[in-house]
Design a protein around this nucleic acid. Structure first.
Lengths: 403, 403
DNA sequence: AGAATTAGTTTTCAATCTGAACTATATGTT
DNA sequence: AACATATAGTTCAGATTGAAAACTAATTCT
C-alpha cells in the first residue's frame, strides 16, 4: 500500500502524510447531503483558513469536491462558497446471493441512482458462470451511470460467505457451494477503468455498513447487525466502524451456541443460533413445506396473520434464541444496540416482543427497548454497503486521485 | 489531550505530528530486552539515517533511551552504538483485590524490580481506607525504586470491576461492594511527581495485557484472556492490542449465556458462565465447605489429586461450559486462542481436557489445541499489566517528555 | 456612503523529512 | 604498515507543509 512499508507494517511518518491526513479530514467533515464553506471547515477542523484553501483547491482538482455557488445566509459579511461532495462521482455496488443477483450505482451524495435485481439460482453454479452473468448487469449499470454523467471510481461486491478482502478470495460460501475461490481477475475485469477497483466483502458486513451510513447509523454508533438470510450472518459496528476481527470474520452470530444440548449444525458445532432462527429452522418449526423461499415466507406471514399457533411458536422460539445470542454478544463486546435485517425485518411484528422478553431475561438493562431496530433497507442493503465501502475508501484516500 | 481538538474528536495534522509519530515508531522498534543501533533502526523503519540520528538525540535527552556502548559484531565497518530502553525508568503497578493488595515496580526493560503483596479483606471497606492502605505500599515501592536509581514515570492501578479509565471512576466493583467511586484525587496523590500520573484499569484487562507483553503474547497476537477469580472476567486482545469495546467493558465472558435454562445470576441474567465456572460454582459442585478461598482451593486440589469423583465432575463441568462460552466468543470475535488465568491456571491439569473436548464439540477447528494456554504470571499478572500499560503509554507519547 | 463583519488569498516563517556529501571507525588485503 | 573496503553516523541544502499575520473581497448594517 504505502510506498515505504517495512516487514512489520511500520511506516515512517513523512511531511507529506500530514497533507494526506488533512485532505481526508476535510472530506470527512462534509456531510454527503449538505455543504460547507472553507471558513466553516477551518473552524471545525482547527486548520487555518490558509491551509483549508490550499487543501480544498487540491480536492476540487481531484473532482471529489465541487463548488455549489455562493451561500447567502442573510448574515453580515462576505458569503462563503458552498462545497459539496461531487454527485457526479459514484461507485457500483453488487451482490451475489443464493437466488438472485443485484447491482446498483451509488453516488457520492449517497443516492442510489440506478438499481437492478434479477432472479438467478446461484447455488452450485460455477463462480465463472455467476460472474459472467453479473458482468452483464454491471455493464448495464455502468452505461446508465455514463448516461447520467456519473464517473465511476470503483465498486464493491458482496457475497454470502467468508471472504479475504485483501486477496479477493471467497474463503467459503456454503450456501453457494463455493470455497477458496480467487476472484482477482474477475473483479479487475468488471470495471477496468475505475481507479479504485472492485473489492470483495461479506454480505452481512456490507449490510451492516449500509445501515450505518444510510440507515439507523444516524442514531447508533455501536451495534450488532444480524442478517437473516438462508443462514444467519452478522456485522459488528463499533465506534461507527466495522469491526472485522483478526482474520476479518468477526460478527458470525449465526454460530453462537444458544443451547449446549441443541442439534448438530452444518458448521460442525452444536446448538448454534442458526439451527433455531435460520429460515430453514423457522419454516420447519412452523410446519411449512418446501416451495421457493419467497413462497414459504408469504405462507409464514399468512399463518402468523391468521394466528396459527405453530407459526407463532416458531417465531417466538427464533426470537427467544436470538435474544440469548444477542445477550452474549452484548456482554462480550459491550454493545448495547441491535439492528435486524433480512427475514428478521420481515417478521418484525412477531419477533420483536419475543426478542425483548429474551433480552430482559438474559441481559437485563444491557439492550434498552429503544435500541432494538429493524432495517428498512431490505433488498438493497448489501449492494448499497458494498458501493458505500468503496466510496468511503475514496474519501479516506483522496490523494490517490491528486497529482 | 491534543492542543487543538474539536468537538467531534477530529484533530488536524500538523507538521510536528510527523516527528511525534516517528519518535514513537523508533521506541516501538527497540526490543525491551535487546538493543539496536541507529543504522538498524533506519533500515527497519524506512527513515533515513539523518532523521534517525536526530530523533534518537531527542530520545536520549528525554531519558527514555540510553547508549549502551559500541556493539562489536566482528563485521567489517564502523561498529554501531547500541541503544537500549533506559532500565532506570519505571512505573508503579498496583492491584486492589477482594482479599489482598499488591504493588510492584516495573522498569522499561520489562523487569519487575520490587514486589509486595499484603493480605487485606477489602470487601466492604471504604475506598478511602483501602487507598490509604495502598498508599503506604506505594510509598514503600517508590522508596525502593529511588534506592535503585529508578525514576518513576507513572503508575497503574487494577481493580476487580468495571472502570471508566478516562474519568478515573470505578463504575461498579460488586466483589468490593463499590459503585460509582471517583478516585481522581486519590490516584493523583499516589505519585504526585510522576509526569504520566496513575491510571485506573480493570483487573482482567490488565492481566490480559501482562500476558500479551510478558507472557504468551510472544506467540499469540489475538486471544481471549479469561481470568478466574471470585468472578470470571475477561480481556480481549486483538492485533496485540486490548479491545475494550464502545464503553470500555468488552470481554465480560463471565456473563455469556452458556445454558438458557441455567440458574439466575447476580447480574440479573440466567445461565451465565460464572454460575458454572466461577470459584463459588466449582467449590459447591465439588462439595467443598466455606473456609477461606486459599484453603478451599487447596482442598479442591487435594480432592482432584485423590481422584474424588465429585471434584473431578465439578471441574469437568466448568471446563465444559467454559468451552461453550469460548466457542461463542471465537465465532463472534474471530479469535482463535485462549489464555486462562486465576483459578483456571491452578486447575490446568484437570480443566484442559474438558475444555478441549468442549471446544471440539461446539466450535470444531476454531481453537486449535496448541492455542489453549495457561498463564504463568499468577499473582503478579494484574499489577504487571497495570504498570506495563503506563510504560507503553510513555513509549507511545515520548514527546511529552521532550522540550 | 462608510463602518463593520465575514470569506478567502497571499506572504513569510518554522518544523521536519529526504538525499547527497561528508567524517569516523572498524575489518580485510597486500 | 599502508591502503582498500565496508559500515555507522553527521552535516547541510532542498522540498513540503501548516501556522500566523497581513491582505483583498464581498456582503450587511447604520
Amino acid at each position: 500500500m504505502s510506498p515505504t512499508r517495512t516487514a512489520d507494517g511500520a511506516a515512517p511518518g513523512r511531511v507529506g502524510d500530514v497533507r494526506r491526513r488533512n485532505l481526508a479530514l476535510l472530506l470527512d467533515r462534509i456531510d454527503p447531503q449538505g455543504q460547507a464553506t472553507r471558513a466553516q471547515l477551518a473552524a471545525e477542523t482547527g486548520l487555518t483558513k490558509a491551509s483549508v484553501s490550499s487543501l480544498v483547491a487540491d480536492l476540487l482538482e481531484s473532482g471529489l469536491l465541487t463548488e455549489a455557488g455562493v451561500t447567502r445566509d442573510g448574515e453580515r459579511g462576505r458569503p462563503g462558497v458552498g462545497l459539496v461532495l461531487n454527485p457526479l462521482r459514484g461507485a457500483i455496488g453488487a451482490e451475489i446471493n443464493v437466488d438472485y443477483l443485484a447491482v446498483g450505482v451509488l453516488d457520492l451524495g449517497g443516492t442510489l441512482q440506478f438499481q437492478e435485481t434479477v432472479e438467478r439460482h446461484n447455488r452450485g453454479s460455477s463462480p465463472g458462470d455467476v460472474l459472467a452473468a453479473l458482468g452483464v448487469l454491471v455493464h448495464r449499470a455502468a452505461d446508465a451511470a455514463r448516461q447520467a454523467g456519473i464517473v465511476l471510481l470503483g465498486g464493491g461486491l458482496a457475497v454470502p460467505g467468508l471472504v479475504d478482502p485483501d486477496r479477493n478470495v471467497v474463503v467459503t460460501a456454503p450456501n453457494l457451494g463455493w470455497s477458496a475461490v480467487d476472484l482477482s481477475a474477475e473483479l479487475a475485469a468488471l470495471l477496468p477503468a475505475a481507479p479504485f477497483g472492485v473489492t470483495l466483502s461479506n454480505e452481512a458486513n456490507s449490510a451492516a455498513l449500509a445501515e450505518l451510513w444510510y440507515g439507523h447509523g444516524v442514531s447508533f454508533r455501536d451495534y450488532l447487525y444480524v442478517s437473516g438470510e438462508v443462514g444467519v450472518g452478522g456485522g459488528l459496528v463499533i465506534g461507527s466502524e466495522l469491526f472485522t476481527g483478526p482474520a476479518g470474520h468477526a460478527g458470525e452470530i449465526g454460530h453462537v451456541v444458544v443451547h449446549p444440548e441443541g442439534p448438530r449444525c452444518t458448521c460442525g458445532g452444536h446448538g448454534c443460533l442458526e439451527k433455531f432462527a435460520g429460515q430453514q429452522a423457522i419454516f420447519s418449526a412452523a410446519g411449512i413445506g418446501d416451495d421457493s423461499t419467497a413462497l414459504r415466507m408469504s405462507h409464514l406471514l399468512r399463518a402468523l396473520d391468521a394466528g396459527k399457533p405453530r407459526a407463532l411458536a416458531a417465531v417466538e422460539q427464533a426470537g427467544h434464541y436470538l435474544g440469548v445470542a444477542v445477550a452474549s454478544a452484548a456482554r462480550l463486546m459491550n454493545i448495547s444496540a441491535v439492528v435486524l435485517g433480512g427475514h428478521f425485518a420481515a417478521l418484525e411484528e412477531w419477533i420483536e416482543p419475543a426478542l425483548r422478553r429474551s433480552l430482559a431475561n438474559f441481559a437485563p438493562g444491557l439492550v434498552p427497548d429503544g435500541s432494538i431496530a429493524f432495517s428498512g433497507l431490505r433488498q438493497t442493503a448489501a449492494l448499497t454497503g458494498a458501493a458505500g465501502s468503496c466510496l468511503r475508501g475514496v474519501l479516506a484516500r483522496p490523494y490517490e486521485l491528486i497529482s
